[in-house]
């Protein structure tokens, strides 16, 4: 399963929906839900996490190379799709790791279906409203200049800002599909469900809320508040990482996540 080439193009079928999926490693099952963008199959954190767990990383409908069925266009659809995925996987319980936008999905899924979840990890997750009505919690990635979004996304923007001139056609097409899909699902209310905050108490599984210390898309204080709403959860930060600690600090990220999953 560690052959990257073989892993690309694999599919996960749920009823009539087919998802592109990356699979790595063996052991305790982990369903990882991606964030603003699909996970690069060559991202180092995948192999690192694959040494400690069986990692299943689907691309949400409309993202990456996953088709989006007609009228499948809300977070409600995504949550129910992943409830189906949980039922379809051959494990009684699965750990759920949600990154950013995928963290919102993971929180919704865990609130709805705690009994199928082993452990929950929310990483720089969206999904709730914390501050007052005139203070946005989450940077508006659509109405902000792309440059400023990059500045806020990374601890080291210089190193990680994508250079479209260096990407392949397929990578750019994927980037554009991700952007459209993210907007479709998350435009309004912008990246949160006003009701979710009240139901986070239903998450009755061990939960780690993990944050990039330099996240300028959604700050660590939001993560702390998120964690306070999930009974018994713990909060931790990854140093020298922005909104994507799994990319900027893969070793520290995997160490922290795997240690939690193995607790």
């Amino acid at each position: 399963m560690n052959d990257i080439e073989a892993a690309v193009g694999e599919r996960l079928s749920v009823e009539d929906i087919e998802l592109e999926v990356i699979r790595r490693g063996q052991g305790r099952p982990v369903l990882l839900l991606h964030g603003l963008h699909t996970v690069d199959p060559q991202a180092p954190f995948l192999d690192l996490l694959g040494r400690r767990a069986e990692v299943i990383v689907p691309s949400h409908p409309g993202f990456g190379h996953s088709e989006r069925p007609a009228d499948f266009d809300t977070v409600y659809d995504l949550v129910h799709l992943y409830l189906d995925v949980l039922e379809a996987l051959p494990h009684e319980r699965v750990s759920l790791v949600g990154l950013s936008f995928g963290g919102w999905l993971a929180a919704e899924i865990a609130a709805a279906c705690s009994h199928r979840i082993d452990r929950l990890v929310l990483v720089d997750a969206f999904g709730i409203k914390i501050s007052d009505r005139e203070t946005p919690d989450i940077l508006d990635v659509f109405n902000t200049s792309p440059q400023e979004v990059q500045q806020h996304s990374w601890h080291d923007p210089e190193k990680w800002t994508p250079d479209f001139n260096a990407l392949s056609d397929d990578e750019i097409v994927v980037h554009a599909r991700n952007w459209d899909a993210l907007c479709l699902y998350g435009w309004q209310p912008y990246m949160y469900n006003p009701q979710l905050k009240h139901w986070l108490r239903r998450i009755r599984r061990p939960t780690l809320v993990l944050w990039g210390a330099s996240d300028g898309i959604v700050p660590p204080s939001y993560g702390r508040a998120y964690s306070a709403l999930i009974p018994g959860s713990c909060f931790d930060v990854i140093a020298e990482a922005g909104h994507h600690p799994e990319i900027e600090q893969p070793e520290a990220f995997v160490d922290r996540v795997a240690a939690f999953l193995e607790e």
Partner: peptide, 23 residues
């Protein structure tokens, strides 16, 4: 117009044209 309202506006460009537009 700033790029977030133009070529990077979601839905503004069919993804298969994105390589041309983004570059």
């Amino acid at each position: 117009m700033a790029p977030q309202y133009a070529q990077f506006l979601p839905g503004a460009t069919p993804p298969h044209f994105a390589p041309q537009v983004y570059r």
